[in-house]
């Protein structure tokens, strides 16, 4: 059953001579529960694709459907609500809110949605993330790995339809990278979460179910890893 579908996605920046095609007719589908890696050289359009899929950046043309819903048919207000409920974003540089502690960063999307976080669910998640002892620490008091785990927690807590990660291990050492990937695999496996991970690291890509390769904004290869 397909969860995500893109149709002829195009994204261009600049005009005239300065026009750059970041995405060029990108079409693919992702079934529910699949863990997909998007790889490609720098400037191939990976991050742009992630932002377009996540409802952050409107495509120049083409469509994105999530669970059958046309994402960009919505206005900006509804798009923000869509992001907070349907998408979990993980960044290389974590993008945590420095004035909120770990627990508050994780629950922020839910609080923004006017919902009260379930303490039991939060406790379970903090246990999975191994952050129980650090729940009241500010991001500046956490290590890079811990900050990324908080970022993953924030992406998971609202149980979104899809999790999009932009080089989640790009800023971490190998031990922390392994831990984070293990965590993401567990999440994918145990919670059946659909994930798209952008990475440069071939080893990380090989841990996914499928690898899409982008070059100059186009899909040049789309393979299942056989995992």
């Amino acid at each position: 059953m397909e969860l995500l579908k893109t149709e002829n996605l195009c994204k261009t920046y600049g005009k005239g001579e300065n026009e750059v095609k970041a995405l060029d007719n990108v079409s693919f589908t992702v079934p529910k529960g699949q863990m997909t890696a998007v790889i490609g050289p720098s400037g191939s359009g990976k991050s742009t694709l992630l932002h377009v899929l996540g409802g952050v950046d409107r495509p120049t043309s083409g469509k994105v459907f999530l669970d059958g819903q046309d994402v960009y048919a919505q206005n900006d207000h509804n798009l923000a609500i869509f992001r907070r409920r349907q998408v979990g974003l993980i960044y290389q540089f974590y993008n945590l809110i420095p004035v909120l502690n770990a627990e508050e960063n994780i629950t922020l999307p839910m609080i923004m949605d006017g919902r009260k976080p379930d303490p039991k669910q939060l406790d379970e998640l903090l246990t999975i993330l191994d952050l129980k002892e650090r729940r009241h620490h500010l991001p500046s008091q956490l290590s890079g790995g811990q900050q990324q785990r908080v970022s993953i927690g924030r992406a998971l807590f609202t149980s979104p339809g899809i999790i999009l990660a932009d080089e989640p291990t790009g800023n971490l050492d190998s031990r922390n990278s392994m831990e984070i990937m293990e965590l993401m695999r567990r999440t994918n496996r145990e919670l059946n979460r659909t994930m798209i991970i952008i990475t440069h690291d071939e080893n990380i890509a090989l841990q996914c179910d499928r690898i899409i390769t982008l070059s100059d904004g186009k899909i040049v290869s789309d393979k299942l890893t056989g995992r």
Partner: peptide, 9 residues
């Protein structure tokens, strides 16, 4: 980052 995680205008 907050807007990406769903904060409306």
């Amino acid at each position: 980052a907050m807007q990406c995680t769903g904060m409306t205008d």
